[in-house]
Design a protein around this nucleic acid. Structure first.
Length: 113
DNA sequence: GGTTTGACCATAA
DNA sequence: CTTATGGCCAAAC
């Protein structure tokens, strides 16, 4: 193959970053979606964990929220406010309850790419 | 190599 | 709306 085969076990986090990086500004996604994009919809917890290990980089972790369109961020509400500020700066609208309209801003990963 | 944990998800009350 | 519980699986200890 022409070097596109990335079946790397143990580099689970690395794949998470790659998927999140493919999310354009103005769109959001959920942990479950990212996990499903990786091939396992049950690893949603690890997606959050991978993002938790992030600090500063090219990974737009703020575009990843939970299924209810809400920001969870256990124990780190400070980043939650940062996340919302960044999303609003990118054009994502929040509901009066502080939730994002996933019906419009949810990003769809492209299959076979 | 077993135990603990965790930025989740779904369901129930 | 919130709180609690089970499940699921990889990384960290």
């Amino acid at each position: 193959m022409a070097g596109e085969a990335r079946v790397v076990t143990g580099g689970f986090h690395q794949r998470v970053y790659d998927v999140v990086r493919s999310v354009p500004a103005g769109s959001v996604t959920t942990y479950g979606d990212v996990a499903a994009a990786l091939g396992s919809p049950r690893v949603a917890r690890h997606v959050g964990w991978a993002l938790a290990a992030l600090r500063d980089g090219d990974v737009p972790w703020h575009r990843v929220i939970n299924s209810k369109g809400r920001i969870s961020l256990r124990g780190a509400t400070g980043r939650g406010e940062l996340q919302r500020a960044r999303l609003e700066a990118e054009g994502v609208e929040f509901s009066p309850t502080g939730r994002v309209d996933l019906r419009r801003f949810r990003w769809h990963f492209e299959p076979g790419c």
